[in-house]
């Protein structure tokens, strides 16, 4: 088990451009969308961290931009990090990590339809939950309006 400080130094070595966010329970790392798939592979494969378990993959719509949030932990060392990546809300694109963690395949499909994030190189990026032929906006975005089914409080 590595402490947050140790993890921080190691990850700075790995990717010099990363910025960190303090205060949370776990170490939050901000990475560029372009460098994420490579970093993910290293985080997963490197025997010092072994982040082999992606337990939460989601996206937050901040109106100005989207943020992808990946919660990673190691079943061996039990240390946890949170990786975040800012995406442009007009044309959100990020590389897939489904080749690193298989669970990402389904979670990315969910984020794809709910937030409209395009996962590059995803093997099977289709609608999972929404009905076939769904057109229009992505339901989990903050600007989504459905006058029939949504009740404004």
């Amino acid at each position: 088990m590595m402490t947050n400080e140790e993890l921080k130094t190691r990850i700075t070595e790995l990717i010099p451009g990363a910025t960190f966010e303090e205060g949370g329970e776990w170490l939050n790392i901000h990475v560029e969308a372009g460098s994420w798939p490579d970093l993910a592979k290293q985080l997963h494969d490197n025997p010092e961290y072994r982040f082999d378990y992606l337990f939460c993959l989601t996206c937050v719509d901040w109106k100005t931009h989207l943020t992808m949030v990946y919660h990673l932990t190691s079943t061996e060392f039990r240390h946890t990090i949170v990786v975040k990546s800012k995406l442009d809300s007009g044309k959100p694109e990020i590389g897939t990590v489904s080749n690193v963690w298989k669970t990402a395949e389904f979670h990315e499909r969910e984020v794809y339809e709910m937030f409209g994030v395009n996962f590059l190189n995803h093997p099977d990026l289709r609608l999972l939950i929404l009905p076939d032929g769904w057109e229009g906006k992505n339901p989990m975005r903050k600007d989504f309006e459905d006058p029939v089914n949504m009740i404004k409080l």
């Binding site: 939460c56 719509d61 298989k102 389904f106």
Partner: peptide, 19 residues
């Protein structure tokens, strides 16, 4: 809450079914 996410066990377990 501004955003809430439930990481449900069934969703991940189901994804292993194909394999």
């Amino acid at each position: 809450p501004y955003r809430i996410k439930f990481r449900s066990p069934g969703f991940s377990n189901l994804s292993a079914l194909d394999t």
